[in-house]
Design a binder for these strands. Structure first.
Length: 318
DNA sequence: TCCCAGGGAGGAT
DNA sequence: ATCCTCCATGGG
């Protein structure tokens, strides 16, 4: 990480390939179609996100130069206040969110399974994104049920714009943060449905928000639990079933054993590993955990991304 | 008009 | 345990 002197609330720095554990494909990572946060903004080859870091809203833009293996990620950021810890904290934030310390080479070497390894070349450097905001991650996961990615993203944006804190950055741009738990907890399902088009998901989203606001549910605490124990708690929540639970476990809590099985992954995995036999989704998820262990989440990510980009045909056969 | 989308809940087998 | 149906909403 090479620091360039910061001015006021703006800063620039670089992340080099030597700072990252293995290859990185920034574009593939950010648009891997699977995250539990609203899609980043894109302009040409640069990607922008807004996130609250240590209580201060920060807007940052990334651009990768060079190759997937030898690269430089140029980071420029702007915040609402000038703080000396911007660079180290934003750097830590990016390491978490983009999974920069995941040992990708180990993943590539550990799984000779040809059905999976076929995806390694075209998707080399794809990393699993994590959420910095657990509440946001859980709500986004809940919105994903029986929904399309586009509509889910649209609803999330509506939610932010209607109920989130408005931020005007020093560069004159306007943005909205994800709403606080307390704000959503006070809403009535009818209103939430009307303003965000989230349909029947409104009620459970509010119920869960109230549980968090009251302290009955502590998301941070779930990080300490095993996959089984955290799952047990999550599955008790209204609007949370196996897929949403795994989604939050993986993208929110960073539990890499979790492999959310949505309709796509279900189709892909049953086709690849069960010869099209009828297998339930929970069994498919258990199969992935069993086969890929601590890399189940990554296996799921690569299969999903590959299938959506190139179709399932190229994945067929060894 | 019908079907589907990063499913879940509740009830019936 | 597994299977059915309904659930809001918008896009194709």
């Amino acid at each position: 990480m090479t620091e360039i002197p910061s001015v006021d609330a703006a800063c620039e720095f670089e992340i080099q390939s030597s700072d990252v554990n293995g290859p990185l494909n920034l574009e593939e990572t950010i648009f891997s179609a699977q995250t539990s946060e609203p899609a980043w903004l894109r302009r040409n080859d640069s990607f922008t996100d807004i996130e609250e870091i240590n209580g201060i809203p920060v807007k940052y833009t990334l651009r990768q130069q060079g190759s997937v293996d030898e690269f430089l990620v140029k980071v420029s950021c702007i915040a609402t206040q000038a703080k000396e810890w911007f660079v180290p904290n934003l750097n830590a934030h990016l390491n978490l969110v983009l999974g920069l310390q995941d040992d990708l080479c180990h993943f590539y070497e550990a799984f000779a399974d040809p059905k999976l390894s076929r995806t390694f070349v075209p998707l080399r450097g794809l990393r699993l994104m994590r959420a910095a905001n657990l509440y946001e991650s859980l709500v986004l996961s809940m919105l994903s049920q029986n929904n399309s990615a586009i509509l889910m993203n649209r609803s999330a944006r509506l939610l932010m714009k209607r109920y989130g804190r408005h931020i005007r950055f020093p560069d004159g741009t306007d943005h909205y943060l994800f709403p606080s738990v307390e704000t959503v907890a006070k809403l009535k399902p009818r209103e939430l449905r009307r303003t965000t088009s989230i349909g029947y998901r409104a009620k459970p989203v509010i119920q869960v928000s109230r549980m968090i606001a009251s302290g009955d549910l502590r998301l941070e605490q779930l990080k300490e639990y095993s996959y089984d124990k955290a799952s047990e708690i999550l599955l008790e929540l209204p609007g949370v079933g196996p897929k949403v639970s795994d989604c939050f476990l993986l993208y929110g809590l960073g539990n890499l054993q979790a492999a959310p099985v949505d309709i796509w992954i279900h189709r892909i995995v049953t086709k690849l590993y069960f010869r099209g036999r009828r297998v339930s989704r929970p069994k498919t998820a258990a199969f992935l955990r069993d086969k890929f262990g601590d890399w189940a989440g990554y296996a799921q990510l690569y299969l999903f991304d590959f299938a959506r980009k190139y179709g399932t045909r190229d994945l067929k056969l060894t």
